[in-house]
Design a protein around this nucleic acid. Structure first.
Lengths: 204, 204
DNA sequence: CGTAGATCTGACCAATTGGTCAAACAACAG
DNA sequence: CTGTTGTTTGACCAATTGGTCAGATCTACG
């Protein structure tokens, strides 16, 4: 918040390298299970040098998480009350699945944070996220009332979109091992499957 | 495997207390993020005393995980090829949701292990689990072929049952915060929602 | 050039980590 | 009550942890 923005290109490059390395490490081992040495090595820096760019391990984690919240909720924000219910929700699901495919580490970072009890996202979830979800739940309810989609619990509908899509990122290893020799890339089939699922679920 | 079974009642009690404490800690912080001191304190023992019962931190973790795999897959094993497809799959889903409600720590322990790349379950997943899933996928496929249920990808169907049910345990904190003031216990509504979802999905 | 500022490093620190061990203590059979 | 076995502990250890700091080195710019 009160920070001076990074100026030089060297700062830009190294801060980016650190955040990228930290994302890799934190998303795998969680905050407590990750070490500055791991992050520094992954970023190609020495530990003291890393601490030249960030004041502490926690500061890196916080920066990652707060950067995450924004982009993570964009697809839900984009849900258009004026659009067609089924189409909007399917588009939301597709966009979330894309994010699992393109940003699996971000998904796992988030999963790790929740698993540990959301110590650093507690307020954001209880505040902004809850508010957004409640607002969009009302939109979904209005689609139900208008007969555009079936009558289903909008909160649990949102949870199901989250769980079904994020699962492909968070449990990537498991899915990969089980589908070994069958699907090298599970996403195309996942998209087809989830489209069917939500089309059937939402059909009035 | 080669261990002598615990004998005295004091051993039985303390081993149980340790495993319970370790489940609590490991499921929250993962293996690397957990400490023996945390576990010992939670178990009401001193660290050296804890190490009197288990040779190492890793040994505790392994014992928890191997104990988990068995019970975790029982519901899937119970899927009866001779039963009615839709009923069997709905029963499986319900049983999995029950497990999320009754054993959320076990679910999170598993989630943590997968997030960290499944270093200790890699072989079990690639072996027993994959084999079981493949076998049950064939059963599901036969139900599809017989017209008992719709034609859907059986592997992704299994993934979706896993993700939808485990989500209520793994993301418990997030769900609790979002539903605050609305549902104190999300499970009854979750069950209703998931029943609808799978009934619609599986209908031929 | 030269030098002011940015960047980087080795050496260091206190706290925490997983784990050991000898000795103290408890339980229980004889 | 005595000795044997099972249990517990305090003191200890080396390695790792997050973090500091003085100084070395590099970079941009006049």
């Amino acid at each position: 918040m009160t920070e001076s923005r990074p100026r030089t290109r060297i700062q830009k490059k190294n801060r980016k390298a650190i955040l990228d390395a930290a994302l890799e490490v934190f998303s795998q081992y969680g905050f407590r299970g990750s070490t500055l040495d791991q992050i520094a090595t992954a970023a190609g820096l020495s530990k003291p040098n890393l601490l030249y760019y960030f004041p502490s391990k926690e500061a890196i984690h916080i920066e990652l998480l707060s950067g995450l919240m924004d982009t993570w909720l964009d697809p839900l924000r984009a849900l258009d009350p004026a659009g067609n219910g089924k189409a909007e929700l399917l588009a939301y699901m597709r966009r979330k699945l894309e994010m699992s495919r393109d940003y699996p580490r971000e998904s796992r970072l988030f999963a790790n944070e929740i698993l540990q009890g959301a110590p650093r996202m507690h307020d954001a979830i209880k505040g902004d996220l809850k508010e957004l979800v409640d607002r969009k739940a009302a939109v979904i309810q209005s689609w139900s009332a208008a007969g555009e989609i079936a009558q289903i619990n909008p909160w649990h509908l949102i949870f199901s979109i989250w769980s079904l899509t994020q699962h492909y990122a968070d449990f990537e290893v498991q899915i990969g091992l089980i589908l070994e020799g069958r699907e090298n890339d599970p996403y195309p089939e996942a998209e087809r499957y989830l489209e069917t699922l939500f089309e059937k679920l939402l059909a009035p």
